[in-house]
Design a binder for these strands. Structure first.
Ligand SMILES: [Zn+2]
Length: 242
DNA sequence: GATGCCGGGAT
DNA sequence: ATCCCGGCATC
């Protein structure tokens, strides 16, 4: 059990109740208490409001809510979570591997040529499964297990689903499958005009990058301190509007 | 591969 | 508010 000062900006932390109260009183509240002034002492145990006691050991404490996991989101732009969910069926280069019904194993790797589509005629045979590549490329082979579920593309606010406990390893969240059209249950479509493929879907409000060079390209990384502030922060440039 | 920048995190 | 980065669309 530790005690932490909650005064704005203060990060004082101690292990005893007396210490923290003393700290709060001296450092933040009036450095004086029983002042000889008037017959009025309004200094109760007000220190209690400026620190918190934190339990360390796993004692009498259990998560209040153990059911619902994620939140439902409108079919808006939020690939962060859509990706990992939609990926439940995007597994392509794995066949026999795990024999657990309802569980699929994925190997997270940043590479992987996924292109296998022809824009014109002729048939296509998209299926390549090669365990070992030519050169010795070692992959971290971070295996993760996710519940095999249908991609929530249309509408399905998943509530209390399976009693699967997702233990996030000492990694970040969980990211898979870059922005793709959608579930793999739609091999090919979009065969309009050979030579000029337009993209109308996606998002009506998609920027179309201008052609003016911005601070980054103009000054180069070597002179980053001359970029406009926004460029330094990887935000929209304000010096060279387009 | 490089560039531009949104979304999100840290202080 | 200021500063910075991950990751993505785009070139
Ligand atoms: Zn700029």
């Amino acid at each position: 059990m530790v005690f932490q000062c909650t005064w704005p900006g203060c990060l004082y932390l101690t292990t005893t109740c007396a210490s923290i109260e003393s700290h709060v009183r001296n450092s933040h509240l009036g450095p004086r208490t029983g002042d000889a002034e008037d017959g009025e002492d309004m200094s109760d145990h007000e220190e209690e409001f400026y620190y918190t006691e934190v339990e360390l050991g796993l004692h009498t404490s259990s998560p209040p809510t153990l059911s619902h996991r994620d939140m439902a989101r409108p079919p808006h732009e939020d690939p962060e979570y859509q990706k990992q969910l939609a990926n439940a069926a995007v597994l392509k280069g794995s066949f026999a591997l795990s024999s657990s019904p309802g569980v699929a194993s994925v190997a997270s790797s940043g590479l992987g040529s996924s292109a296998a589509s022809n824009s014109s005629s002729s048939s296509s045979v998209s299926s390549s499964s090669s365990l070992g590549s030519a050169a010795g490329s070692s992959t971290p082979a971070t295996l993760i297990h996710i519940p095999a579920q249908l991609p929530p593309w249309s509408s399905s606010a998943s509530a209390a689903t399976s009693p699967v406990s997702i233990k996030t390893s000492p990694l970040k969240h969980l990211k898979l499958s870059p922005r793709s059209g959608s579930c793999p249950y739609q091999p090919v479509l979009s065969v309009s005009a050979p030579g000029t493929a337009y993209k109308v879907p996606g998002s009506p409000t998609r920027k179309v990058r201008g052609d003016t060079k911005k601070c980054r390209k103009v000054y180069g990384m070597e002179h980053r301190d001359q970029w406009c502030t926004q460029c330094k922060w990887k935000k929209a440039c304000t010096r060279f509007g387009d």
